[in-house]
């Protein structure tokens, strides 16, 4: 993510991470999720699904922040995200003042 200035607590605050799930054959290829995902995680697939639509593919899984917008905007209940537990390695260094 780009900031106009670096937040003071950037070291402590980790953006949440998410995993995207897509039910390929339920999708009707409207592109809402692909267009409005704030992190540009998704892209149209080149292949067709069973109904003849191009569902999204997860192009940049590492960018997903589990914001849930794709899930909220999908008219077909075909996509959603779940939180991903993040390893807590940095905690000791980041705790001080």
């Amino acid at each position: 993510m780009k900031y106009w200035r670096k937040p003071l607590d950037a070291a402590q605050v980790k953006p949440p991470r998410g995993e995207v799930h897509i039910v390929i054959n339920r999708c009707k290829g409207c592109g809402f999720c692909i267009t409005y995902c704030p992190r540009k995680v998704l892209e149209f697939s080149e292949e067709f699904n069973r109904k003849g639509y191009h569902p999204p593919v997860v192009l940049h899984p590492e960018n997903c922040v589990n914001c849930g917008l794709c899930e909220a905007i999908c008219p077909d209940f075909a996509i959603w995200s779940t939180p991903v537990e993040q390893p807590e390695e940095k905690k000791e260094n980041a705790g001080g003042k």
Binding site: H21, I22, V23, I24, N25, E43, F44, S45, E46, E47, N49, P55, V57, V58, L59, E71, F77, A78, W80, T82
Partner: peptide
């Protein structure tokens, strides 16, 4: 690289199911 992973999410349930 835009391959369909047809197994993705098949065993999961939509949060509004």
């Amino acid at each position: 690289m835009k391959r369909l992973d047809v197994t993705l999410g098949q065993d999961l349930r939509h949060p509004l199911e």
